[in-house]
Write a protein that binds this DNA or RNA. Structure first.
Length: 490
RNA sequence: GACCCCUUCGUCUAGCCCGGUCUAGGACACAGGGUUUUCAUCCCUGUAACAGGGGUUCAAAUCCCCUAGGGGUCGCCA
């Protein structure tokens, strides 16, 4: 089975495209002799960005998708970049023209626009009126002398085009609704609907898996295959199978785009998602395992995902679920791996990380709750923010104003001075306070937490205290006692 | 406007092809409870959907028709 992923290099690889790539790749990897081909569709020189092509390679590699043929590694059907295949398209275009499947059109864009508008107003379908189809050689010559450069249009036959889509099922289009589309621009470059067919044909693609925004393009492409087959012989031209996968939508049910957040592979990487998790989530959009399990390895996905079992309805992208899946994958990392993974996100904050051992302790203390890399910052903020009691909000003050809070904090300060600086040592002091003053539960722990961290919640309190160190904690308690309770201690 | 595609809990989906096993299953989210000093983790419980309307049938989420809503295409973009 030969499949291909054919993005155009116009920006970051989006989740929608990434899913298309994943599905193609999965299909190719199901069998020993399956081939995944990467082709760059860059026929529109105005929109191309060489950086984007590099970005696509990087994004695919990061996701763990490798290709068997492509612009960078070559293959038996090079070129794999459409901009380098122009002579091939021209050759096939001439063939179509010579055999009466294509004709020159000299209409200007302005003329076309005008007539299209008029057709729409009169309630006719806005398709090309074939004005240039019956031009004589002399007329064509004349137009050429006027400096007009013709485009080449495909002659759309009468009747209908039907095909069986692996996902959508039987689809029928009547060709009277299809315009004689342009296959070669006036500068001789090919258009999409023509170039894909030529490339899929020469690259012997068996199955075209792509977004269902291409569904309505498919009859045009089949028409080109038909023409090719009539010219070259039916045994030489095989129309591939098609599988049009539904789009990915944003929460507002419109097509997923940048305004929905970090929806490109690159941005997901930057936010601290694991490639396996994104791969897993994207595979789950429109598909589910018969076992109902959701955390699935690539190997299992290759085995279980069947293209014709993918839902035909569009799916809404849900960051919450991606977060959950990512968290599940994060849990599988060893402590060492987890630290390595989140470290770069901490470096970006500008915090002082020189005491690496200490920072690592902090990380491990909070790792359970982290669902993506960047989130580590939020969890560690408590350790790095300034101790500024003007930050005390009403909620925090309420805790400090509990009748017993003053005693707890004062006692804690006194006892801590000669505490053994271990978990057991600090814990023993808290227990002493509990016993001596008959204060327990949140009335015991909350005041201490607030007084030491200015937070209501956080990781294990004793661990947090140990990480701060005795000097810092005593300093903080002293400030609270002095500034808040107006108690002088030594 | 024309053509095509789509429509099950808030979200992803199972079931639909081959009507009864569906008082519609799972997961995420949410709510409640338990564990925990708190948060998180973990465990338990719960709320919640067949777009609407007609048919066919003893029986319809499942088959047929219509309507509505959403999306896509109609480019010298891909």
């Amino acid at each position: 089975m030969r499949v291909r992923f054919a993005p155009s290099p116009t920006g970051d690889l989006h989740f929608g495209n990434a899913r298309t790539a994943i599905l193609n790749w999965i299909v190719a990897r199901k069998t020993e002799d399956g081939k995944f081909i990467l082709r760059i569709e860059d026929t529109d020189k105005d929109r191309n960005d060489p950086e984007a092509e590099k970005g696509i390679y990087e994004a695919l590699k990061w996701l763990g998708i490798d290709w068997d043929e492509g612009p960078d590694i070559g293959g038996p059907f090079h070129p794999y970049r459409q901009s380098e295949s122009f002579d091939i398209y021209q050759k096939y275009a001439s063939l179509l023209k010579e055999n009466g499947f294509a004709y020159e059109c000299f209409c200007t864009e302005e003329e076309l626009e005008k007539r299209k508008k008029k057709a729409l107003e009169e309630g006719r379908p806005p398709i090309y009126d074939r004005k240039c189809l019956y031009l004589s050689e002399e007329e064509k010559q004349k137009l050429r002398e006027q400096g007009r450069k013709p485009v080449l249009r495909f002659f759309v036959r009468e009747g209908e085009v039907r095909f069986n889509d692996k996902i959508k099922g039987d689809v029928v289009f009547e060709t009277k609704n299809i315009s004689d589309f342009i296959i070669l621009r006036s500068d001789g470059s090919p258009t999409y609907n023509f170039a894909v067919v030529i490339d899929d044909f020469r690259m012997k693609i068996d199955l075209v898996i792509r977004g269902d925004d291409h569904l309505a393009n498919t009859p045009k492409q089949i028409l080109v295959y038909e023409a090719l087959s009539k010219i070259l012989g039916e045994d030489k031209v095989k129309i591939p199978e098609f599988a049009h996968i539904p789009m990915i939508l944003g929460p507002d049910r419109s097509k997923l785009s940048k305004r929905h957040g970090a929806v490109s592979v690159k941005r997901a990487k930057e936010k601290g998602y694991l490639p396996e998790a994104l791969f897993n989530y994207l595979s789950l959009l429109g598909w589910s395992s018969p076992t109902g399990e959701e955390i699935l390895s690539k190997e299992r996905l290759i085995k279980e995902v069947e293209i014709d079992r993918i839902s035909s309805a569009a799916a809404v992208f849900d960051f919450t679920k991606l977060n959950w899946i990512n968290q599940e994958y994060l849990k599988k990392l060893s402590d060492r791996e987890f630290i390595e993974f989140v470290w770069p996100f901490l470096e970006k904050t500008g915090w002082d990380l020189s005491d690496r051992k200490k920072v690592e302790k902090m990380i491990l203390l909070v790792r359970d709750g982290v669902s993506f890399g960047e989130e580590i910052v939020k969890y560690l903020e408590v350790f790095f923010k300034e101790f500024d009691i003007t930050q005390l909000n009403d909620k925090l003050k309420e805790v400090l104003d509990w009748e017993s809070s003053k005693i707890v904090i004062e006692e804690f300060y006194k006892k801590l001075k000669d505490a053994e600086w271990t978990k057991e040592g600090v814990f023993a002091k808290i227990k002493e306070i509990q016993k001596e003053n008959k204060i327990k539960g949140k009335f015991l722990y909350m005041p201490i937490r607030v007084a030491t961290t200015l937070e209501e919640h956080g990781p294990d309190l004793v661990e947090v205290i140990l990480i701060f160190g005795k000097d810092e904690i005593l300093k903080r308690l002293k400030i609270i006692l002095k500034e808040y309770y107006k108690i002088e201690v030594d």
